[in-house]
């Protein structure tokens, strides 16, 4: 089955990103395919490469990057949500004349159309959040 995943909450504050990650991993292990993971609301904060959690804790952004690397999963941060919250990729950095970018490996920033497309293309769109 082709799954789309929507993550609506930030890392560590909320279990949504953990559950979405575990779901994606389990789905892949069962032979399913993840069409896209779309991060919205505070969920965009899952895409920062500047997080430094304690060593005995899971590294949520890195974990997503690694899963995407391994299984070629499309990780998309909503551009409007990202701009509000200071999530920046190299293109956004140039466009808005910021002095840095902070996006983690394998994440990209794009429009909400990518979420709608996931809804249309995937067999199931699963939301993780409250």
């Amino acid at each position: 089955m082709l799954f789309g995943i929507l993550v609506n909450e930030g890392p560590y504050q909320h279990q949504a990103s953990d559950s979405a990650y575990l779901f994606a991993k389990a789905a892949i292990e069962e032979g399913h395919t993840i069409f896209r993971v779309f991060f919205y609301h505070d969920g965009v904060n899952n895409g920062t490469r500047l997080a430094t959690p304690p060593q005995d804790d899971r590294h949520i952004p890195n974990r997503w990057s690694e899963l995407a690397q391994e299984h070629e999963i499309d990780l998309v941060l909503c551009v409007a949500a990202a701009q509000r919250r200071g999530m920046v990729d190299p293109d956004e950095m140039k466009r808005h004349k910021k002095d840095a970018d902070n996006i983690a490996d394998k994440f990209r920033i794009s429009g909400l159309g990518q979420l709608i497309e996931a809804g249309v293309q995937a067999d199931r769109l699963i939301t993780f959040g409250d």
């Binding site: 909400l112 159309g113 979420l115």
Partner: peptide
């Protein structure tokens, strides 16, 4: 932000 999804989604 839900309303923003609805507005973008309307184009589809």
């Amino acid at each position: 932000e839900a309303l923003e999804v609805v507005l973008i989604g309307a184009a589809f």
